[in-house]
Design a protein around this nucleic acid. Sequence first.
DNA 1: CACTCCCGCCAATTA
DNA 2: TAATTGGCGGGAGTG
Length: 891
Amino acid sequence: ENIFDRSRMAPKTPIKNEPIDLSKQKGCTPERNPITPVKITDRPQPDPWTPTANLKMLVSAASPDMRDREKKKELFRPIENSEQSETPDSLQYDIVDDSTVDEFEKQRPSRKQKSLGLLCQKFLARYPNYPLSTEKTTISLDEVASILGVERRRIYDIVNVLESLHLVSRVAKNQYCWHGRHNLSQTLKTLQEAGELQYGELMTFQHKEQDLEYKFGEQKKETLPESQDRPLLDFSEPDCTSASANSRKDKSLRIMSQKFVMLFLVSKTKIVTLDIAAKILIEETQDTVDHSKFKTKVRRLYDIANVLTSLGLIKKVHVTEERGRKPAFKWIGPVEFPGKSDELRGHSPTSDPLPGTQRGACAQYQTCATGKQRFTRHASFNSAQPCEAARRKVSSEPNSPHQERQDEYCSKMINLAAVCRQKIEEDTGNKACDTETILNSAKNSSITLPFSLPVPGDSDFCVNPLPQAVFPVVQADVPSLSLPIGISSQTSHPSTPAACKTENGKPTLVPNQPFLCFPSSSLFMLCGGLQENNLSETLPTPGEVGNRSAEAQAAIPPAVCQKRSSHKCTSPSAPVDDEEPAAKKQTLEQSELPLSLVVPKKPSESPKAESSPGSGCSSAVHPETYRLNLTSPAAPEDADKESTKPLDCQEQEKRSQNKDPDELPPGNEHISKENANQPFQPQYLYVQPTAGLSSFNFLFSANQAPGAISLAANQLPSLSVPCVMVPSAALASFPLICSPSFTSPLSPVPDSSFSAAASTNFSVSSLASTTPVFVSTTAVVTPKVSPAPSVDPQQPAHPALHLSPVLTRSCSAVKLDSPLCVGHPVTLLKLQQPSSAPLTPKSIRPAHHEAFFKTPGSLGDPVAWKKNDGSQTRNASSVQRRLQISSTSPD
DNA sequence: CACTCCCGCCAATTA
DNA sequence: TAATTGGCGGGAGTG
């Protein structure tokens, strides 16, 4: 009742948005006659204006009965009209009416308030962007129409457009099914491909011919890179519409909508003027281009544009041509889509139960990494920022291909990330699994990785995001890009925050941080870059390390936070997670820029991470450099690295387990020393899985730069170090994963033996359902994908190690494209290769952990990894051990 | 005046 | 045949 009252009130107040319709209905007044009749069927002329009456009306409207009401309404319409006109007498009405009317009229919602765009936003607000796969949301047109207070006709306008993008599908007569944005990127991709075939040339062509240059400059020609992929697509292709009859549907708003979207996707500038679109569409339609048609087309385009705007896919802009300014729309949605969807699909089936659709995509994403190993992908969720940047860039600097590429790449990643994330969420279910966040980095680039690993079957597996913290990830939305700027704020997208959307909605680039999402099946390694700053700071001597770490933690966090804030991340985040209920979530974190790894020196870089969306990726250090560092015996570095480890451990522990951090330090130091001796072996930190984490294990490389490790203030665990998380499921697929980081030094080890050992170990682990393993290497990065392991001298081929094809593929695909991520691919390759060293993780861990790992020699495996290092051996063993343990008893 | 685009008639489709 | 969809274009707000 309250509600109704309110609504009732609303009409009076100017503001209200409510039910326009209702108001109309009320509009029983004579004036309104023509309009809608409404009235309550029940009693057409009863006392309208009593409060009660209003309530009733509203109620009826709201209720499912609406339908009836409407029907009646129609019936009555004539009646009312006639009556009213005829019987002006209803005095009662009049009297009341006057007052009512006046207000009514006054408040009469302005035209804008009734706009289709606004209506669409309201409509969209009712459904989650990324609904859980499990629940099917059905939409009743009548219901929605009544709730939103509009005529059904309007709802059709919205729904038709949404349907064209597959956000909804029609299931029955008055029923639509809400799908959300899960398939949006896929749909867009399809449209893009189709668009290229159909319009690619056309666009280019037309633009030129028609002299439609934009002020920005002419559009470049587009290259139609892959048009070949598909045969022509019919519009219908997108399934929903499919083959339905051609008749009316041909002109359908749906088709127009798809075509319109295609134009954007094909356009280099991503800007399409209305008249061009109208012309193109008309031609296709074969309509003669007469003026009236044109006008009509434009009208329709406005309708579509309003909906797309609400979806955050486009925004209105003006293009100045010779003749003057013309209305146009700019695409602000995702630009790049994951590579071939088909390929993607390949992904290992093991894990996901999810509907396969997008999953594949996720796998692809592996990418970016940062520093050392970059095994993973980045998915960034930053909402729109990157996109934004990209877009801007495009518009303004169409010429710089390189940048564009990056941008695209970023966009793509983001997009992917979003998708992945969503998937994951779905998979995991509402449960907490969702996401996580991360945060991190102190300075410049911090990357946040929220990810979750979904394990099939294992609910725990997932990492949860911090609830409050950074990401407010609401299940529903993370819109990747989708949210339009403006809208986002409005709609509740919690998601954005992390991403850094600014308040305005503008995305800031946050520079950073792309989030990583991994498909359950996939593996990843995260590499954190070190930050220069951190490094320098952290560099403390080994001995100090422990202290340092502590300090670092304390100190850094705040900084980080601030930083973030500066970036704009509004997210509440603040306290990052450590506090989080660790159990569920794991957060990982991440480090900052990848770059840093390489250079400890280059402090100079300002934190502009934001500038480059791809920063995360970009971070990739040059392999060579990287390598050098690694190889270099620099003790200090090692120390640092180690120091980092401890931190990580602590953090993680805190986060996840709450174990004592204290213990770690000592252990760490200890280890560190050992490490120091060796040039650089990769060290890994193993994080014990906590309850929540049980599903995965983390290994962090000890080598990592300390900086990275630094914790975020909150303890966000930002791990700068590269770490790998592997879901158990994942393991199954891969017998081994390891990154051989040490390329050089290690080489001496007998490959064969080694390999054997390695394989053995891993295999075991793999068997164990529980633990996943990761190995990260410090790695070497080879430039590019090239398989050649120039880097590793030693690489015996181990059959055992191989990445799943999928991964490989995906990696390569991804990597190749993006310049930024160059490093990553390499990593993968290495992985594939049997790099010699499997891991050597030196495990450093807090006492607790140690227990697990415990040690060095203890391992049962006789096998010993043959590495040069005993330590390595130990590590491996420890790892195994850990795995075993975990498998048996999760803690 | 040019843009926008709401509104709702009414025909094509469906049930 | 009735109801549902949705094309279409007049013409009203806006700037």
